[in-house]
Amino acid sequence: MSHLLEVKNLSVAFPTEDGLVQATDDLSFHVDLGETLAIVGESGSGKSVSSMAIMGLHNPKSTQISGQVLISSLGHSTDVVTASSEEVRRLRGGTVSMIFQDPMSALHPYFTIGNQISEAWLLHNDGTKADARKKAIEMLDLVGISDASNRVDAYPHQFSGGMRQRVMIAMALVNHPKILIADEPTTALDVTVQAQILKLLKDMQHEFNMAVILITHDLGVVAEVADRVNVMYAGRLVEEGSVNEIYKNPVHPYTIGLLASVPRVDQAHGTRLKTIPGQPPSLISLPGGCAFEPRCEFAKFVPGNLCKTTRPQVEEKHTGHLARCHLSAAEIKAHQ
């Protein structure tokens, strides 16, 4: 059975004066209808770059992309990497939609929100401006904006951050996409508003039965809303599995470190927060072996120089639980 979205061996690189920046490297994953996939990782781990690649938003002149991004729509599969720009444009905002981190700057300041939502609808549907406006009001109502028929003529600067994110969601969903990519949708918002927006996303997912790719570095958010998790490090997928599996039995040393560094309410007062020593590597000329090796506490348990010399492949460590590590799940467990 083919997946709704299947990313195969995706590599995105940006040539710069200092060398080739390998933003994502041999990335493969998939998403199915109705599920929520969280992609976690620190800044520069390739989360946003891979989502931009799914949307076909990279400038082909300044980007080198290889691999496949297959999107199934109406029984037909399109490879975003090789499709014509017109084909990709039709997918964008129609089959795949995206919302962004900072709702303050993601809306055009000169157009009313109704105008911006209508535009998105008109791009993918045949209809009059009046139909589009009606649709915009309907969507604003759906995402919880009160008095939508009046607020539709307001400008973005007249809304608060949380309201603007609701507007963004209304705009992204106006064409009933199959996939919604949410790139750190709550990072720029207050904590209370964050919870509302996450709930809204969840509600909308049920309403429209779509797949959600949630990009975040907030592990609390992941635990709350995701079904599966991709952990990324230095442009590579290091671990993939269900939320339960990843949180209970992490098998990659990076994931273990990441989970240990989350502050917990039940922690004894005065305990120091655990951190992962060192810095993420530069994406120009990555080490030949495992990208995480210089910071890895478990590398010393691997015989010889294997971590330095050989790049580990993604392997199934438990059923449906993949990781890119030379150690087996049992070995990791033993040394933990």
Binding site: M55, L57, R89, R90, L91, R92, G93, G94, S97, M98, F100, D102, S105, A106, L107, H108, P109, E119, A120, L123, H124, M168, M171, A172
Partner: peptide, 11 residues
């Protein structure tokens, strides 16, 4: 950002 938004919605 709003230019990226415009592209993302298929303009």
């Amino acid at each position: 950002d709003y230019i990226r938004t415009a592209r993302a919605k298929g303009v």
